[in-house]
C-alpha cells in the first residue's frame, strides 16, 4: 500500500515555521510522508480532475530563498520527520509552474495570499476555499501557532460531506488511536441521524471508534463550539450551500473557524472516502 502524502507549501518566515511544525506533527501522527514545495514563483497552478486553480502567493513566500531549503529540512527533522521536496516538472507558462495534485492531504494556513494583512481569525482566503471545493483530498487548515492535538472531533451534520468527514475521522482514529468525539448541532432529531447512520452502514464502526457523541438540540452555535476541546483536531465537511445562501446566511465554515483556533481538517465535496 502506498504511504499517504501531505503537501505543504513552505513559507520561510516564523509564521511558516508554525505551519510546517503542524504539518510535521500531522504526518508523524498519521504515519504519512511530508512533501514540501518551496515556491520559486509568485504563483502556481493546480490541475485537478475537473478544474484548475491558480494560487497567487503573497511575497512573504518568496523571501530568502537561499535558506528556505535548509530551514525546511531543519524544522522537519527536529520534529522527527524526513521531508521530501517537489520540484515542478511542468510549466504552463515560464513563470507559472504546475504543482501535482495526487496527494492525500494538503496543509494550508488560513489564507495563502495576502497573509500578513489578514492574520485575524474569521477569514479563509478565497484560494484556500477554491482548493477545498475542487480538491479530491481534504485540506488541513493549520492554527496560527503550532498546536499538537490529542483528540479528534468530527462535526457531523448529516449531509454527504458529513459522512465523508465521519469516515475520515474513523480512518484517523484508527491510525492515531486518539479518542474521537462526535459533535452535532442538530437540524433534525437524534433519531433521524441514527437512521441515516444505519442507512449508510457505519453503525458498527461508529460504536467501535466513537468515544462520545455530543448532541445539541438547542442553544447557539458559539456555546456549542465552546465544548470543543482546545487540543482537538476538528474534522468537518465543507458546507457548499451555493453563493446566494452564503451571502444571506453567512458561511457556517467561516463562523466555526472564527470561534475556534483548532486545526481544521476540511473535507470538500469532491473527496471520496477511502475504501
Amino acid at each position: 500500500m502506498m504511504i499517504s502524502r501531505l503537501l505543504h507549501i513552505f513559507q520561510n518566515t516564523p509564521l511558516g515555521r508554525e505551519t510546517l511544525l503542524q504539518a510535521a506533527y500531522f504526518t508523524k501522527k498519521l504515519r504519512a510522508s511530508l512533501t514540501i514545495y518551496i515556491p520559486r514563483h509568485i504563483k502556481f497552478l493546480m490541475y485537478f480532475d475537473n478544474d484548475v486553480v491558480q494560487v497567487d502567493l503573497d511575497h512573504s513566500y518568496l523571501v530568502s530563498p537561499d535558506t528556505a531549503h535548509d530551514h525546511a529540512v531543519e524544522i522537519a527533522r527536529e520534529a522527527g520527520v524526513e521531508p521530501s521536496f517537489i520540484e515542478p516538472k511542468h510549466f504552463t507558462a515560464s513563470a507559472l509552474p504546475d504543482i501535482p495534485t495526487d496527494f492525500d492531504y494538503m496543509i494550508c494556513p488560513r489564507s495563502i495570499s495576502n497573509l500578513s494583512s489578514k492574520l485575524g481569525l474569521g477569514y479563509i482566503g478565497p484560494k484556500v476555499q477554491s482548493i477545498i471545493n475542487t480538491a479530491n483530498f481534504p485540506v488541513l487548515i493549520a492554527s496560527h501557532v503550532y498546536k499538537p492535538w490529542k483528540n479528534i472531533v468530527v462535526f457531523f451534520g448529516g449531509s454527504a460531506n458529513a459522512f465523508n468527514a465521519l469516515k475520515l475521522g474513523f480512518l484517523i482514529q484508527n491510525i492515531t488511536n486518539f479518542p474521537l468525539t462526535l459533535f452535532t448541532y442538530a437540524e433534525t432529531s437524534f433519531e433521524a441521524y441514527q437512521k441515516e447512520i444505519a442507512d449508510q452502514g457505519v453503525e458498527d464502526e461508529l460504536g467501535l471508534r466513537v468515544e462520545d457523541w455530543q448532541f445539541f438540540e438547542s442553544g447557539n452555535l458559539t456555546d456549542y463550539l465552546y465544548n470543543v476541546p482546545h487540543d482537538a483536531l476538528v474534522i468537518l465537511g465543507a458546507f457548499n450551500h451555493g453563493l446566494i445562501r452564503d451571502i444571506m446566511f453567512g458561511n457556517k465554515l467561516e463562523k466555526i473557524q472564527t470561534s475556534i483556533t483548532n486545526n481544521l481538517l476540511i473535507v470538500g465535496s469532491r473527496y471520496s472516502a477511502v475504501g
Binding site: Y47, V52, Q54, H90, A93, D98
Partner: peptide
Amino acid sequence: EVIYSVSRYGGLLRLR
C-alpha cells in the same frame, strides 16, 4: 498555453 493544456490536462483552462 491552450495546446499545452490540451496535451497534458484535458483542456483545463482558467476562468480568467
